[in-house]
Design a protein around this nucleic acid. Sequence first.
DNA 1: TTGTAAGCGTTATCAG
DNA 2: CTGATAACGCTTACAA
Lengths: 337, 337
Amino acid sequence: MSQKPFVSAQEVAERAGVSRSAVSRTFTPGASVSPETRRRVVEAADALGYHVNHLARGLMLSESGIVCLIVSDMGTPYRSSLIRAVTQQLQDAGKIAMLINTDRSDGSVDLALRQAIRYRADASIILSGMPDKSITQLCLKNGQRLVLINRDDDQEGPFRINLDDAAAAGRLVTAFLRAGCRRLAFANSEAGTPSLMAREHGFIAAAKAIGLEVVVERYGPTGYESGRVLAQRLLTQSERPDAVFCATDLIACGFMDAARHQFSIAIPGQLCVAGFDDIEQAAWSSYELTTFAQPVEAIAREAVTWLGKDGSDDPAERIHSVRLNADLVWRSSIRGG
Amino acid sequence: MSQKPFVSAQEVAERAGVSRSAVSRTFTPGASVSPETRRRVVEAADALGYHVNHLARGLMLSESGIVCLIVSDMGTPYRSSLIRAVTQQLQDAGKIAMLINTDRSDGSVDLALRQAIRYRADASIILSGMPDKSITQLCLKNGQRLVLINRDDDQEGPFRINLDDAAAAGRLVTAFLRAGCRRLAFANSEAGTPSLMAREHGFIAAAKAIGLEVVVERYGPTGYESGRVLAQRLLTQSERPDAVFCATDLIACGFMDAARHQFSIAIPGQLCVAGFDDIEQAAWSSYELTTFAQPVEAIAREAVTWLGKDGSDDPAERIHSVRLNADLVWRSSIRGG
DNA sequence: TTGTAAGCGTTATCAG
DNA sequence: CTGATAACGCTTACAA
């Protein structure tokens, strides 16, 4: 077809009979253009189908409007709902999301961040995995802002959004106790991420505080199938637990399904179960799972607002981390309530 | 901090003691550079933390490497798994995905495509909603390639990937028949998208072909809750159906939950159920849902391969649409099998 | 308010 | 193989 498909400001200017800077100004929020000029420019632009080239604009402004989302397991309910919330809020803030899938390998987080730098993303938001400290520094040095969600790291540069996993897990012990449970168990994956481990440790600590032991089992990746296997292991022990805290809802769903259909255990009659994340499925009537809600909207808001703040603030004054609460959502997988 | 955060090829050239074109060539796949020059350039680049600016590169090549994904309801299992597959394959092909959330309103698909043009995306892949024909033309005129997934439209320009929904739905009638079912029902949402309607019509037509009527009910958006409401309506009728085809798995899950827990109907004993999509939850033991599998990997592959093809081919020879099969996945929500 | 001109960081072209 | 030079499309002083 045509060799030069995109319309440039130059062509609009010619058609409108003005200079190309007039065109530029027309599409720049805080610029002064006479109403008459603006009208003619807009008219010509519409007729020609002109759209400002954000690549070129980004080149000039050294602000691309691009924010990279670095994610693995994005098919998972919790992850995908977080992506939904973040993309929506970014768009509301006039930015746009680039999505990088890091399922392949662990080093791929570093590769993803390199990609973000190449596209001169204004920032990167990391939802999974953990970048090498050297890459983090590289990003920061390149003026890239970094947000870590539920990564619970102690690096200084990035903005960190975390949940109070341990505190939440602690509150659950009381709930189990009120339901008359005494033999507590914790079903975790082998992923060993900080938030997963915080839930485990918080639960154990709170139990120990009132003199109860917790049987801990860890297996596989963080998903439904692991929940089934964990049920296999925990429910065949001589002293069967009467309360299980699963590290995530997905694990809890697998656990409940195995408990009911394979071991014919009544929930919550003979066994109380809790999860974490409050994915959509937790509310389905096959589960009715009591769980802690990830405040996805709040997380997204925190991230986007922080990005919106002027980077030129005194770095010392800038907030570097925020801790949000995970509220307990009561459903019928725990007795009482 | 520093005012000019990003390192440019210029600086690398100076440090390496070569011209900037030498630097450019070093990072351009098919360019000729002497091993010695390359070594010095790479060394300098590493030391300085240089990364090619893809914004500028895109400006030059008029090929940004960006592909826009236009999606609504991305928190949904089927959508998110498709996003996962597409992003992965795009990355494997050396491209990168921009994700645009169109949950807000219907016109937002048009807005999204405008955004894609601004960032000079090489292509846009539309997973939900339908763009106005004028916008489609605008994209095509701007050299943007367009892929429509399961949009089942008859526009000429875009590449269309569709499932044979009607044929799949037809095969299901036979399956229900073999299970001894005679009172068929179809549970649909009110969304009325082409693929949803094709399933409905295909099912009705195949049933009529063997002399059976189908009770059709439509309600709300395409989700779990609608499935519950649809169960409410279909299972309280005087002649209760003994087989229900739900337009999507999400609807089917809601339907099954209501049927079992609210109406105490045994599945598949008293009622056979089928869905569409084969989301992860369909395999969970609370559902064991017989369903049609969306070939997400194949869809992603078709899309990305088509994008990879040289756009300069004779447009007449270029393939404009492909139709994939949805295989039936047998599970225990239908008797026999 | 408007136009002119410089520069952002690339890559392609073309001599050498 | 290498280096100078001209685009690419935009914004923004600066001068009119």
